[in-house]
Computed example of a mutant assay.
Amino acid sequence: MQTILVVAHLFLALGLIGLVLMQHGKGADAGAAFGAGSSGTVFGAAGAANFLSRATALLATLFFVTSLALGWFSMQSTAERPGLMIGQEIVIEEPATAPVSEVPEMPGVTPGATTPDVEVPRIVE
């Protein structure tokens, strides 16, 4: 069912794009008033604009309905997955490690000694 809705949604989107591109803007009405020959069209003098606007409104409504239906189906399929349930507690166990000393050992220093085993060179002026 969801696949059928996706295909219908795609065709509605393409049809909606086509209908919007076929309509002319508000500025084109002034040219038609001075004998542009629109009375000889298939839909008559004002029929094309009326038909296209109604078809666009119908396709836009159907596009909106299929968008809501696809969102509902998407929400239902997410709720059915056991790994994505909201409110489920996730427990992460930490691996057992050896205790770490508070002070890291420094190379060249014996633990408990007050002076280092290595002599630090001094700068003489």
Rank of each mutant, 00 (worst) to 15 (best):
M1F: 13
M1G: 14
I4Q: 15
I4F: 13
I4W: 04
L5C: 15
L5E: 15
V6I: 07
V6E: 09
V7I: 10
H9T: 07
L12F: 05
L16M: 01
L16H: 05
L16S: 14
I17N: 06
I17S: 05
G18C: 06
L19Q: 05
V20D: 09
L21E: 07
G25N: 12
G25T: 13
K26S: 15
A28D: 15
A28H: 11
D29Q: 06
D29R: 03
A30M: 07
G31W: 00
A32P: 00
A32K: 02
A33I: 10
F34P: 13
G35M: 02
G35P: 11
G35Q: 03
G35W: 05
A36H: 03
A36N: 05
G37I: 02
G37H: 00
S38M: 04
G40M: 03
G40L: 06
G40A: 09
T41Q: 02
T41H: 04
V42F: 09
V42R: 01
F43C: 10
A45G: 12
A45W: 02
A46V: 03
A46I: 01
G47P: 10
G47S: 09
A48S: 12
A48W: 00
A49H: 03
A49C: 04
N50T: 12
N50R: 00
L52M: 11
S53L: 04
S53M: 01
S53D: 11
S53R: 00
R54F: 14
A57Y: 02
L58G: 12
L59T: 12
A60D: 13
A60Y: 08
F63T: 12
F64P: 11
F64N: 09
V65C: 10
V65N: 01
T66W: 09
S67A: 13
S67F: 01
S67R: 00
L70Q: 11
S74D: 05
S74M: 03
Q76Y: 09
T78Y: 15
T78I: 13
T78N: 15
R81I: 14
P82C: 02
P82E: 08
L84N: 15
M85N: 12
M85C: 13
M85R: 03
Q88F: 06
E89P: 03
E89H: 02
I90G: 15
I92V: 05
E93F: 08
E94R: 01
E94F: 02
E94D: 04
P95E: 02
P95V: 03
P95R: 02
A96E: 06
P99L: 04
P99W: 04
V100E: 12
S101Y: 03
V103F: 13
E105G: 14
M106G: 10
M106Y: 09
M106Q: 06
P107S: 08
P107L: 04
P107D: 08
G108R: 04
G108W: 05
G108E: 10
G108L: 03
T110C: 14
P111N: 07
P111I: 09
G112N: 12
T114G: 14
T115N: 10
P116D: 06
P116N: 07
D117H: 00
E119R: 04
E119K: 01
E119V: 13
V120F: 02
V120H: 05
V120W: 01
P121N: 01
I123H: 06
V124C: 02
E125Q: 14
